[in-house]
Amino acid sequence: MQDFDYAAPISTHEAVQLLADPGHKAVVLAGGTDILVLLRERRRRATLVVDVKKIAELNELAMTADGGLFLGAAVPCSRIYREAAITEKYAALVDATKIIGGWQIQSRATVGGNLCNASPAADSIPPLAIYDAVAEIAGPNGRRQMPVADFCSGVGKNVMARGDLLVAIILPPIEARSGAAFQRFIPRNEMDIAVASAASLVELDDQGIICKARIVLGAVATTAVRASHAEEALVGQPPSDELFAQAGALAERSARPIDDMRGTIEYRKHLCGVLTRRTLAIAVERAQSKTQ
């Protein structure tokens, strides 16, 4: 392992100062399940590791006053999926947190870190995106918020500048008659990187007609991509298997995957269709179970 210093600030302000210090090349340590591997394999360089787990607000996991969710950037996956209220409201996020790595990884890995790493195959990003989640960032010039959908700017790249720290991810409240789901395709059944993934959210009106749809695909472009054509095709329609299949076919057209050891372009596009169809079916079922 390369040589570095370690600091564990207890306030966001202090952390931002450390991260902004020009005397250091600082990296953030939250769950450590990616950054420690990158540092050990010398794929990232650092002279200072800033452990943010001692900062209270980054550890906060709570429903907000308006019924949304405040998800501190250092909260591990296992805390998220153990909360019944979160499973009830943000099922797609829970779907993802349950399958990021094995249990040992979930004890440490954070959704915040998953977002900051900006891997195209990140499991938590498509769910965050369908919920219109917002990233709260603290920086040397104060705080700002931005949609999670705009947070990643490329493979392993995000919009954060030197000194910026992701504080939390805020999920807006969801509509009562909505449901969502996330699925990924992997060759094994756990401990694997998505070949393709899809998160779908649907909202039903009083008549059970789809009045809003969100579909976001993972691992099929440099960042998570929204399947807008598929979304449009769903709105105003009663849910049906045929409709989901049609949406799946449209979703395939939004994917811009590459050929690599995990899959071919052709196969990944095909998987987008399958996963869109399947997640829509679960999302609608979940929405319907709430309306009954």
Binding site: G102, P187, R188, N189, E190, M191, D192, I193, D260, M261
Partner: peptide, 15 residues
């Protein structure tokens, strides 16, 4: 390309 136990997929107990 896959010199790790993540990408060289030996079966897990779930498989």
């Amino acid at each position: 390309r896959n010199a790790s136990l993540l990408d060289y997929r030996i079966p897990t107990c779930l498989d």
